[in-house]
């Protein structure tokens, strides 16, 4: 059971906040007469979302990430999922990764629910035969039997989230990345989806889990990493880390 599934070494991630403005002729012209300002601006815009974050995750571990907004939790998950390439450091994953960072990525609003099951499944990297064989299971789990021919744009947000959750959780991935998505749909579906997550976790999957709900982290995780401003503040036993984290916010367990 000591097999390492994820190894992150000195991960650093820099975003340039000014990048959105891009290069425009006007700005270029203005900067021409003020070269000093340009240089200042550039480094001022640098934002380190993560700095020298290292950790290892062994098979079957469920690691929770806590921290305030902007602590770098989602960035970290996206690096593990391969969406971002870290500015510095290395990330190694051993096994197939199922990222549930944002559900329904790749849903096409104009297509029907059943067409979207295939499209979304393909986006998640499933094979055609796999989706075909699991199609009924997906529909059953989402409980959207009567709506499979309806374009997703006519779905309520709860319905499309259900569909997305059902597609995403149909696999048994070796590494599961979850970014606060247990709060999907109505109360009944929420408990059902939580159950599903629990069964996936108990099935020996390695999980990275981000949530603001300390309660659910304590319930699910075997280890917790507390991030703040891109640094690891503390890593270790869930109860201990969560207590300190909450204490820093002026709350108690």
């Amino acid at each position: 059971m000591d097999e390492i599934m994820i190894r992150a070494k000195d991960l650093s991630m820099m975003f340039n906040l000014g990048i959105d403005k891009g290069f425009s002729l006007k700005q270029g012209f203005v900067d021409l007469f003020d070269p000093k300002k340009k240089k200042q601006d550039k480094s001022k815009n640098d934002f380190w979302a993560l700095q020298d974050v290292s950790f290892e995750v062994k098979r079957g571990e469920v690691i929770g990430f806590v921290g305030c907004n902007g602590a770098g939790k989602s960035t970290l998950l996206k690096i593990v999922a391969g969406v971002y390439k870290p500015t510095k450091g290395t990330i190694e994953t051993f096994g197939n990764v199922c990222p549930m960072i944002e559900l329904g990525a790749g849903f096409d609003m104009d297509l029907s629910a059943s067409e979207n099951v295939y499209l979304n499944g393909a986006v998640m990297g499933y094979s055609e035969e796999f989706i075909k064989s699991k199609y009924q299971e997906i529909v059953d789990f989402s409980e959207l039997h009567d709506f499979m021919d309806v374009p997703v744009k006519n779905f309520s947000s709860g319905m499309s989230a259900r569909l997305a959750f059902s597609v995403a959780t149909i696999v048994d991935p070796e590494i599961l990345i979850v970014d606060e998505i247990l709060s999907v749909g109505d109360a009944a579906f929420q408990s059902k989806s939580e159950e599903k997550m629990l069964s996936m976790i108990n099935g020996g999957t390695t999980v990275l889990y981000v949530s603001h709900s300390v309660e659910s982290i304590l319930k699910l995780c075997t280890g917790v990493i507390w991030l703040d401003h891109g640094h690891i503040v503390k890593a270790g036993e869930p109860e201990e880390v969560c207590r300190e984290y909450l204490a820093s916010l002026g709350q108690s367990l």
């Binding site: 104009d110 499209l119 990297g125």
Partner: peptide, 14 residues
């Protein structure tokens, strides 16, 4: 390959 197929057929359908 399957993803490419799906994306092409999406283009057609849409």
């Amino acid at each position: 390959g399957f993803l490419i197929k799906q994306l092409v057929s999406r283009d057609f359908k849409v």
